[in-house]
Design a protein around this nucleic acid. Sequence first.
DNA 1: AGTACCATGTAAGCCGTTACATGATTCT
DNA 2: AGAATCATGTAACGGCTTACATGGTACT
Lengths: 181, 181
Amino acid sequence: MTMSLRHAVLGLLARRPSTGYELTRTFDRSLRSSWHARHSQIYPELAKLEAADLVEVVGRGARRSKTYDITEAGRAELRRWLVEAEPDRSQRSESGLRLFLTPLLETAERRATYERDLAHVEAELAALEALRAGMQSATEPEVFAPQVELGIRVNNVLRSWLHEQVEAPAASGGRHGRTET
Amino acid sequence: MTMSLRHAVLGLLARRPSTGYELTRTFDRSLRSSWHARHSQIYPELAKLEAADLVEVVGRGARRSKTYDITEAGRAELRRWLVEAEPDRSQRSESGLRLFLTPLLETAERRATYERDLAHVEAELAALEALRAGMQSATEPEVFAPQVELGIRVNNVLRSWLHEQVEAPAASGGRHGRTET
DNA sequence: AGTACCATGTAAGCCGTTACATGATTCT
DNA sequence: AGAATCATGTAACGGCTTACATGGTACT
């Protein structure tokens, strides 16, 4: 009953008309931090959205490509979802789960996993900062500046937290809250 | 191929032996920020884990309840997954998607959605801070302190970012990057 | 001619949600 | 006795991933 893919597609088309192929790449690039979808999901969803008159084909190009745009009804539905629909805040993050379980490991292994995460966060930060730098010259940026700023801040918090965990003095691993006698 | 539910269950049982019913509640409480599962998924998963000798029944109580504990093989599998398995960092966060799409709204509506998010973040922060306060006296805390600290820091970043968006001077809504002439 | 990439679709199967279903224990 | 809560299970359905499948266009 979530059906967020529908609104993700509507949202991307509200930014600019696109082919299914372009949407697929956009999911990988701009949206990869919060949503993801494969082409095998996107093409059928576009067909359903077209049947519901929420999007329409506005052009056919080379290689059988179809360019879709959002309709007025689609904009209304997108607006309704953003403003009126109750957000589903449940998340499903394997990284979060790992972070939650990592204290169960012994010191050396725990540090190793934190260091792996740290390397990933540094890479994310570098990518986001490159994006921010590139946006200042771009005439039509891919992403909104404040969102990039938020990503940088969150990753900075993650980085400093992970750094503290790596530097921290040894704490007990194994079963939580029990003292092994 | 992700199969993280399996490792989430193993991880919770590594903290302490539990019944399926207790695991269900723990998913709602401790793990709600990164993973979720219903009892209809947990009971069959426990049966599969038992068949694979990764968990075992260590007691039967009132009302037909079965208490499970992780086995040595289960601990080995959990450790292997945490240390060796390549993390799947793809996320699926409706809140993230909403944040990404909110700039498409006009000023008034955009502010309203940021304010709704702000209220939610404040509530999260209050809950986390209450948890931190309660943990100092508890003999066997439910959650590890550094993880709570991380949650507080991330939510603080979100709060200040949302606050800036609410206070920000009006910026263009509508189709991104285009100037409506 | 061959390779790489653009572009769209379908099918099988797993994962997760909602709904259905049952029974035990405790409290009033 | 009835309601609330504890406790465990199964079934139907839809979403998402992986894999299968096809063809167009550009480059060398």
